[in-house]
Design a binder for these strands. Sequence first.
DNA 1: AAGAACACCAACCGCTATGGA
DNA 2: CTCCATAGCGGTTGGTGTTCT
Length: 329
Amino acid sequence: MGRSPCCDKVGVKKGPWTPEEDIVLVSYIQQHGPGNWRMVPAHTGLMRCSKSCRLRWTNYLRPGIRRGNFTSHEDKIIVHLQALLGNRWAAIASYLPQRTDNDIKNYWNTHLKKRIKKLQSPVGNEITRVNNVNSHSSASKGQWESKLQTDIHRAKQALFEALNCDSSSDLQGNENALNPADPIFRQRNLNPSSPYASSIENFSKLLEGWKRSSDSPNDIKLPNSTSATSSCSESQSPQYSTLPISSDTQMEGLNNGSLAWTSPFSFYRGYEDHKASSDHFHLSCQPDNFHNSIDNGLPFSVLEEWLMEETNQDQLSHANQIVQELGCI
DNA sequence: AAGAACACCAACCGCTATGGA
DNA sequence: CTCCATAGCGGTTGGTGTTCT
């Protein structure tokens, strides 16, 4: 019994999204919020299936996403969490709130996996060993999880070492650089000008690229429902109004973050609150909550909490130790 | 210079989980 | 309980750019 397709395959566009499509999608979500994806193609006129819209949003357009340029700090976290969790990319991504699971998965497959293969260092051997445990063909998931329980201490230690190592090498010996209270930490992680790009930055890059490539970049077509002054009933077929984005000054505004028009992402907090309530891993890991945790000096509270949940009493006491150590970073 | 091989990554596919009717 | 819609997830594919021969 085949599963009914998420959309009518006939006439559905596939392949890379164009900037125009992105703008239409973002504008629609600005107006209606994410969710009810089935309605999105019908209401926006996008020739995409609902699933494609959702993926485009979650993997690319969603606010708070940082793309490319993985830091060595992130490398280490990914490597160690992969050793700990296996290919559970969503779980790994929950500890790197600004990265998507898809991004991490791609990065692992194209960079880290190869790098680790080449590694003959003790750390590399350890990772290889844990990975072998994870990928052993005869091991069932239950067996793997059982093994995970026994290896959890080692994994915690490895993660802790990675974090420590990073604080001494990647951060050039500044031991406060991972301290949430430290200005350097805040600049690296919270400042809009930090490498952790906001989606507005992503979006402005996108617009910039489009501006360069478009033959007539003067106007961006938007559904009427997205204009500031108009409203649109949900049954309306898409009609377009134009949002003039023509001058370099306006593009400057987008690029330097001094956005004049209402941020498309003003609804974001509510959305993330909704999401967080439905996903244990994402609880406290969404950007706002994550930053709150940072502000509170608990950047890895969820990790600690989860690790403690998974361990027995002996491991629990050791986990408490780790928690304290992590809290001191 | 040109074609082949490789690397990268956005997007897709197919499956499971979940929740509501 | 069943059915259906939707979200989430991990594996895979295919297009494009880069490097190699």
